[in-house]
Design a binder for these strands. Structure first.
Lengths: 371, 371
DNA sequence: GAATTATATGAATCCGATC
DNA sequence: GGATCGGATTCATATAATT
């Protein structure tokens, strides 16, 4: 299923893992081409030998002790570079997720804001089975922090509110997610039976991220691909991915892992949508079709007010003329009003919301539309 | 109980609220003199227009002048200044707590690290009853973040591991704390019945902070004192406080509030250093939430014995200290005892089993739902 | 008085298509 | 591109009002 979309002169390598430094590679990809970025960068400079100083000299392993201020400076430069390269790739309506711990997440969050990303939420991954603090010197480090941000203020980011609400048993999804660590069968092992990657993320985490903030067919980029959790879940969910990873052993593990994944079928990928996605029906159509007649009276939700339907699909009530919404808002002294649920008509002596008339029209529209 | 400790040439004004700008005032206080700082600075919310609930009622926004900053640059300068003034005041073994939301916490965290504070944990306050996201455009903002940091790397900070474990019913305290918002009787009102402060913090939060990271007699400074939650809990727990607040109306409310507080007696303040058993709802939460107060007396099922509640959720009765279960078992000469049904408190002259308090907490938490 | 129902509210960066 | 306006959107808890 590997494919390449060309955009301008440069190709976008989909469903592949690119080998090399993510900053260089991201700079070589076309701008404004990616829907979502998920990034799980290295947390701590001192404990890893795979980072570079600004002059590109390699940082030695743990025994290379330098003070924390130099360390932060180098980490900030690294963060600044990969975040700006990432931002360039995002479509105007694109968004980014980053994940980190208290060692690095504050620096990432501040840099996100500095670069003009617009933070939408910080989300807490609450681990149901964290490693205890063995020495009893601090609180059990039982969570990690994710930051979700749009490319810029006012960006038209994707948020599948209804799908997430459904995932959460019908209650609005909160900013704290209880998800177990990645263990058991899901945890990839190398040839020796050791874990293939030290910080493999659970698929449940990516599932929630991708269902919630992308649509099928979207392009998801992960610049710190590791063993490919982002790619695996993207494939299952019918999203295209681009992975970037420097370590050959991680790439190999990810490649083998993703090859085994099957995409869910089309029906399974359809998620709950909100009313906002449904076609708009002007109230005038209700009158045009004779479902309500000019001169007929409508009654407010508490039956306190009446208004009369006019031939052009406006109402008149208490000497105020306007749309079903405007007249409702005026009578209630409210800033706004959904006229469809506010107004009722009489049928067999009972009050029925006019919204059922809109539903009838929508049902008819469905019949005429190809499925 | 107002007192002044002199240290060198300068006095340390204990258990008072100082009027004015916290940066200037902190600069005038003696260095290396404070054990703990708790800081709840303005969040820089950057709110735009009005927000209405689906029922059209208007959300009472935090639009106070003190939360207005022109830019991140201005906010960063403010953060840098108050944090450096605060750091100077801390004893070498001192520590700081800051609290914030995604609007400001990343900038505070980065600056803490820049100044040489050593982050010990980030802690998530998971709100059991947050305000929903009314427009369905983001995740419910259901938490705030606290950062706990020592004055510098290697600082000999205070951490009452066993007391916190006891508060958590024998299980190591985690970095995510479920605590309700400050509402009801605890929420201070002004003369008109409006809230006295827009962002009053729950006492349960400060209880956990102060029991966990200070000792009786320690000096706790709060540079953004507001209506004095830090001072109120410090007084209860036998810690000395220093408050700094600019707004006269907040100072007045705090003054009146703290005057009414009684310090728990000495016995109640001694916290446990032994291990506990492990049912599900920690009795410590009953104490933290103020459902029972340290020093309050409990009565055995036949009203033959009495015991006193201590600040860490243990009891003392007949010179025996321990969990509600342990003390009950000891008094009855039994191998075990269910403290929840054994112990009763007095309400309206009647004896009520403490188990109903556990039921209240369970109802609030209702953590059986997947998040 | 007890039980039930209605109302109020909390640190919030909360709309988007069409004209 | 700014203005207009249709119309979609909420959870837990405390307290007041009602039955």
């Amino acid at each position: 299923m590997t494919k390449t979309i060309t955009k301008g002169a440069v190709g976008l390598p989909l469903n592949q893992i690119m080998a090399g430094d993510c900053i260089e590679i991201m700079r070589s990809l076309p701008a404004d081409s990616v829907d979502l970025i998920f990034a799980d960068p290295p947390y701590n400079l001192q404990l890893r030998g795979d980072l570079h100083r600004p002059d590109n000299s390699k940082v030695d392993a743990v025994d290379d002790h330098w003070d924390q201020f130099d360390s932060f400076k180098v980490y900030d430069k690294f963060t600044k570079d990969w975040l700006s390269a990432a931002r360039r790739l995002l479509k105007p309506g694109g968004a980014i997720w980053v994940i980190g711990s208290y060692h690095n997440v504050f620096r990432m969050g501040a840099e996100l804001q500095n670069q003009g990303f617009w933070i939408l939420n910080d989300v807490v991954w609450r681990k149901s089975n964290p490693m205890p603090n063995f020495r009893g010197k601090r609180f059990t480090n039982a969570h990690e922090t994710l930051i979700w941000a749009s490319k810029s203020e006012g960006g038209k980011y994707t948020f599948n509110y209804e799908a997430l609400k459904a995932l959460n048993d019908g209650v609005q999804m909160r900013s704290d997610w209880v998800i177990p660590l990645c263990t058991g069968h899901e945890r990839l092992k190398d040839g020796n039976g050791d874990k293939a990657h030290p910080t493999q993320k659970p698929e449940a985490l990516l599932h929630r991220v991708l269902v919630g903030t992308t649509n099928p067919g979207d392009v998801v980029l992960d610049p710190f691909f590791g063993t490919g959790t982002t790619g695996a879940v993207a494939k299952m969910l019918g999203r295209d991915f681009i992975g970037i990873e420097r370590e050959p052993s991680y790439r190999d593990a990810a490649e083998a892992r993703i090859a085994k994944i099957r995409r869910f079928d089309r029906e399974a990928l359809e998620t709950s949508t909100s009313k906002r996605a449904e076609p708009r029906v002007p109230f005038g159509q209700v009158v045009e079709r004779g479902m309500l007649r000019p001169g007929e009276e409508l009654y407010s939700i508490g039956n306190r007010y009446k208004a009369k339907v006019r031939a052009d699909g406006t109402l008149i009530g208490n000497d105020v003329k306007g749309s079903i919404h405007q007249v409702g808002a005026h009578l209630e002294g409210a800033p706004s009003c959904n006229g469809w649920t506010y107004w009722h008509f009489k049928r067999d002596g009972k009050l029925v919301p006019i919204d059922i008339l809109r539903q009838q029209i929508r049902a008819e529209m469905d019949e005429t539309r190809p499925h």
